[in-house]
């Protein structure tokens, strides 16, 4: 799946807004203006905004770039993701689905990885019944994980699997951190790690890290370990299977038409041979 310049721009913009959507508690700036009441709106603004952003970027990425082969592959891989997620909908930290997302994104590229992350999370949440305002944020985080896996440098063999396992650990931790960031301001309360608007970036970050360590580090580490182990154990055959599928699907087929046997080749009119 190719990413055009417009899609790249939108991806960049979405990423920037997305970072803001997760990390706004650190950025929020308390001033003595008359509108401090609006501070409380920030989380709800993002709850509305992130789905819109996702819709825009997904529409842009899919315009013309998702042909029947890609959409079928997306659907089937999302089903595999969901089948792995169903037994453990993200509560105990054993989340084997991440490794599949990372390996698929690695094989099919970053654009596909981004879309797969979002679609797979959406589909599996529909199946497990986990839809809510948190879903777009999870989708965005998963899409980044997929995008990142597609950006890794080219390598083959054991070093590749080692790199992917390392990426799995990092991405699993970052994903945990991001979703926690989203949740943190909603927890409220007056504990020593609660979000306090206007306390300042450093102080709030400090409180957040404590929150993260105490509430979810265990889950995140389990997720990271699961992912790394699976990449190391299953990486080779699964990568081989995915690469074979990619070869067999012939994503951008070379199509030639010759008018008469032995004549001059002419490119297909409106065929999928042209770059989309």
């Amino acid at each position: 799946m190719r990413i055009g310049s417009r899609s790249s721009f939108l991806l960049l913009l979405t990423t920037l807004f997305g970072i803001a959507a997760f990390a706004w508690p650190l950025m929020i700036h308390q001033s003595s203006g008359p509108n401090t009441a609006h501070n409380g709106d920030a989380p709800w603004v993002f709850v509305g905004l992130v789905p819109l952003l996702l819709a825009i970027v997904m529409a842009e990425l899919s315009e013309g770039a998702i042909d029947a082969k890609a959409v079928a592959l997306l659907g089937i891989l999302a089903a595999c993701f969901a089948a792995l997620r169903v037994p453990s909908p993200g509560i105990n930290g054993f989340e084997p689905e991440w490794f599949l997302l990372i390996l698929s994104a690695r094989v099919f590229g970053r654009g596909f990885g981004f879309v797969l992350g979002a679609v797979a999370f959406f589909a599996s949440s529909l199946i497990t019944g986990g839809v809510g305002p948190w879903l777009p944020f999870q989708m965005l985080a998963a899409a980044w994980v997929g995008f990142g896996a597609g950006c890794l440098p080219s390598m083959r063999g054991f070093p590749e699997r080692l790199m992917l396992a390392g990426y799995g650990v990092v991405s699993a931790l970052v994903y945990g951190l991001l979703t926690n960031f989203w949740f943190w301001p909603f927890v409220g309360g007056s504990t020593t790690y609660s979000f306090v608007p206007g306390l300042g970036t450093i102080a709030n970050l400090h409180r957040f890290i404590l929150f993260d360590l105490t509430t979810s580090m265990g889950f995140d580490l389990t997720r990271a370990a699961t992912c790394a182990v699976l990449v190391l154990v299953l990486g080779r055959p699964v990568l081989a299977a995915l690469r074979r599928a990619s070869r067999r699907a012939v994503f951008e087929p070379q199509i030639e038409f010759i008018d008469q046997a032995g004549g001059e080749p002419t490119p297909a009119l409106g065929g999928r041979g042209d770059p989309s």
Binding site: V250, Q254, E256, F257, A261, A268
Partner: peptide, 20 residues
């Protein structure tokens, strides 16, 4: 050849429309 890729010589016409 649109889905599979490959080189097709000659023409296939269905109901007056060519696959090219």
């Amino acid at each position: 050849p649109h889905f599979s890729g490959g080189v097709l010589a000659g023409t296939v016409t269905v109901d007056g429309r060519t696959t090219k």
